[in-house]
Nucleic acid binder design. Structure first.
Lengths: 146, 146
DNA sequence: TTAAGTGCAAAATCTTTGCAAATGT
DNA sequence: ACATTTGCAAAGATTTTGCACTTAA
């Protein structure tokens, strides 16, 4: 590294007592660059230099530490996205809406959404909501309207 | 079969131009017996006499025909449940809440739930909602309270 | 009778595990 | 130097595909 200046990712890794390795920083920058959750196959595609197994381990380590969270898309494949800052180790604050675009297959994490209270049948106790919705994202919606 | 009387499952299969075979009827009765979605591993366990591959094929055929629908649990494993009657071929009306119990791992399909309207950010167009929530089901909730 | 469905074997994927070599602190 | 992390190889698990045998209509 040319500069000794620490970027956000390095601080983040330090905070979680993880070593600042190339593969890890690369995963972080990949995930941060997108506002959508990224599937492991996609990550593999972009980071063909990183071993597939290493990727598994990095992703599960990050998930455990609360750096990223996993969300399943319509096909049941795991997609990963950065956690908002209030995620703690092994306890994710995942109460936002995951929007799954049926056209481009992207998974949007709509964090800043005021979810209406959902009333469950008697007896059910929701510890936390993980809400999914599917449809068209703005981009694809526009493309189709034309 | 002792009686020539057709049961619901046979009618259902006929309706979709599927032959009434042993394995298919067994899958239908298994899924109908439970008010929760059942995972393929669980189905395999109960129906050890049916070939694993056959099960894959039956489940995907049923899904295509709109007889059952697939829902992913917290681990991303597929769980299957009977569709309500208004599911059409390749177009599921899946707009109910899937409740995933974190204790017993069962997936409840809460059909008759009035979902509050969810307002999405501008541009997003929801074709259909698939909503998940996680927490404790009545049974596990009770067990823990004791 | 014959088209559809099943079961077995085998391929293709996906995910995990073990361990030696490499790397960050 | 030392504990972590990585990469490779190999095991395990899951899902798909091909084909001959069986079965429902």
């Amino acid at each position: 590294m040319a500069l000794s200046h620490k970027n956000n990712f390095e601080v983040l890794l330090e905070k979680h007592h993880l070593k600042k390795t190339g593969p890890r920083l690369k995963v972080l920058s990949m995930l941060s660059a997108k506002n959508v959750a990224t599937s492991q196959p996609d990550l593999e595609g972009v980071m063909s230099d990183i071993d597939r197994v290493t990727l598994y381990r990095i992703l599960s380590a990050f998930e455990e530490k609360g750096i990223i969270h996993k969300v399943f898309d319509l096909n049941g494949t795991a997609n990963y996205a950065m956690c908002s800052s209030d995620c703690e180790e092994n306890h994710h604050h995942d109460e936002h809406l995951h929007f799954n675009c049926t056209a481009c297959k992207n998974v949007y994490c709509l964090d800043d959404l005021n979810l209406p209270p959902i009333k469950l049948p008697a007896g059910f106790k929701s510890e936390g909501f993980t809400l999914y919705a599917s449809g068209l994202c703005p981009k694809c919606n526009k493309a189709i309207e034309k």
